[in-house]
Design a protein around this nucleic acid. Structure first.
Lengths: 334, 334
DNA sequence: ATACCAAATGTAACCGCTTACATTATCTAC
DNA sequence: GTAGATAATGTAAGCGGTTACATTTGGTAT
């Protein structure tokens, strides 16, 4: 039979209130009675009911984690697995449970607040003009995004995308490349646009050629990267280097380059973005811009909890630094 | 201000009980009053409190999902992402929330039952001799594993690993291979052993050579697959085909084979296992045994819910069929 | 119209905690 | 030893639902 706080109280010969105080580490309880109560808890095999506690305190002790729809192919991206590691780790530390939801068509975030299943929401991979976020903000619901969106008041943690791209493309320029292509994901996501802007900035600063025939859009999968690179290589004068704004696309790109009979990096240099694990196991290994994915995860949780507990004010915006990891695909001076 | 069932009751001029009945679709309520109540709910913007409901009904409406520790490198395997898709999808259908936990050192599953945060547990990637599972069974806690373990009473859904391996290696034999290697994960997981046994069975049935110098262990990562294949290729007489019992290892293997200056499939044929998305984007594309990962996910949730609701008896054991997907890495007749 | 019965609704207890407030025990100062 | 202050503990209400049981309503048979 399920033990309640009442049983423990009787066993320890104190009131329910005292047991509750011991459970919550209230300072106003004698060491002596604390021990008595602890002993009773041990003996009875009592576990406090999470639901009862949550009902009385009006806290769900829970964060809703919203991940992209399974339909969305990008969900398979190792980026998500890695950031999930950060989430779960930090959530445990902060004493919050993580509820997993998928961001399906017309999914109503607010619902989760209304029935008090969550204290806050953590959203991954949100489209830049997702209107739902505005509602969250307007309603003053605690939430955090991983990845910037257009809404100016949004809370988010992101990587320094523009800077990272700038660094990567600058590296290519310093190697002597004059004709540098760009292949990246949809501007539906701000980080993609920022990476493109970082790329563009370098070209402009060095008066290098840029334009439509040098850029190609993809959707962060091996498959789309493959297709996009194929198209890019159909051009009459192909680039000597391509900045591919995410690793999965970069890996797909490699296949297309090889199929065309070109060598990496001798004929075409490639730099990716993300530094997923796989980047070390391509042939050649992939030079890429590392995002601190795990830290983005822990940071997001930590800030969200502070928001929930009223220790921080909105809007909360954080950008973590990136780092260029040089491997085989970028080659040497030309 | 937060609306309760009491407000709705007053607005609709009925009792709390009636509102509750409407909320729970009780048949014993007039269509007329039902409408009256629904109208009041709409007008007041009322949402029933999940915690209050859970406390009274003594149901958490929640399944605990236990995934391998972040420390465990195999966690990045796309297998997990895919099965997660199945979990979330089916859980939503069944009306259960999914709580995410990481299986850290000494993590005590039972805790989650004791404080009633979950109604059941879904465990992924559990070690074959995990003692925690026995406790769950003994305590009659509803749980489900994805992947068999040694404990005979365990509930699980798995793929037909032995059969799948048997099919793959038979295919290699039919192509004319006589010297077939095996590269796979640790026997700490039953599925790895089963795949090996499937492999071995084929060799024995055809009186083919087998032994230590033809087999190599790895841990389901590109990196380990790479290292393992390197070692395998140090042998004086290398195999003409290798069955690599998971795709990530197979992808790592490919790199090692190429580095050695050997061609796939001309010099060495390769077959993987899993059919992760990436398998279509390797060079050459990877022949592999497809597991119905997504279906394993939905099935596991569905069965767990039936266990929770007392509609099925333990032990519950299900194996889903696999399918050989023939691509480039296996080559033709030799 | 009356008696009876089933269906619809209401009443109130209960789920297992927390916490404001009341009470009691303990200590200090005189 | 006593008054007063303070610390420790107890009492009871409340969190927001569900549900067994009681009551009322409405319909049917006489």
């Amino acid at each position: 039979m399920r033990k309640t706080i009442e049983h423990v109280a009787q066993l320890a010969e104190v009131s329910k209130a005292t047991v509750s105080r011991v459970l919550n580490n209230s300072p106003k309880v004698t060491e002596q009675t604390r021990e008595k109560v602890m002993k009773a808890i041990k003996e009875s095999g009592y576990y406090p009911s999470a639901m009862a506690r949550r009902l009385t305190t009006n806290k769900a002790e829970t964060i809703g984690l919203i991940i992209p729809s399974p339909q969305d192919k990008t969900f398979g991206n190792p980026f998500y697995t890695e950031i999930l590691r950060g989430f779960t780790h930090q959530a445990k530390i902060e004493g919050y449970d993580l509820l997993l939801f998928i961001n399906e068509h017309q999914f109503n975030y607010s619902q989760l607040f209304h029935d008090r299943r969550v204290d806050g929401l953590l959203l991954v991979g949100v489209n830049r003009n997702d209107k739902g976020i505005i509602q969250l903000s307007k309603n003053n619901f605690p939430y955090m995004l991983t990845g910037k969106i257009d809404y100016k008041e949004a809370n988010y943690v992101d990587a320094e995308n523009r800077k990272g791209a700038y660094q990567a493309v600058s590296y290519l320029v310093n190697l002597g490349h004059k004709r540098i292509g760009y292949l990246g994901g949809s501007f539906d996501f701000v980080f993609n646009q920022e990476r493109f802007e970082g790329y563009l900035q370098v070209l402009k600063e060095h008066n290098l050629e840029y334009g439509k025939e040098l850029t190609m859009e993809s959707i962060n999968t091996e498959e789309s990267g493959y297709e996009a690179m194929r198209k890019l290589l159909e051009s009459s004068s192909i680039p000597t280097a391509v900045f591919v704004a995410n690793d999965l696309d970069a890996i797909g790109s490699m296949k297309a380059v090889k199929e065309k009979g070109l060598r990496i990096p001798e004929d075409i240099s490639l730099i990716g973005f993300d530094d997923i694990q796989l980047a070390s196991y391509t042939e050649p290994t992939l030079t890429t811009v590392r995002q601190p994915i795990y830290e983005m995860g822990t940071t997001a949780i930590s800030l969200l909890v502070q928001l929930i507990e009223g220790k921080k004010e909105v809007p909360l915006k954080v950008e973590l630094p990136t780092q260029l990891i040089i491997r085989g695909s970028s080659g040497g001076k030309i």
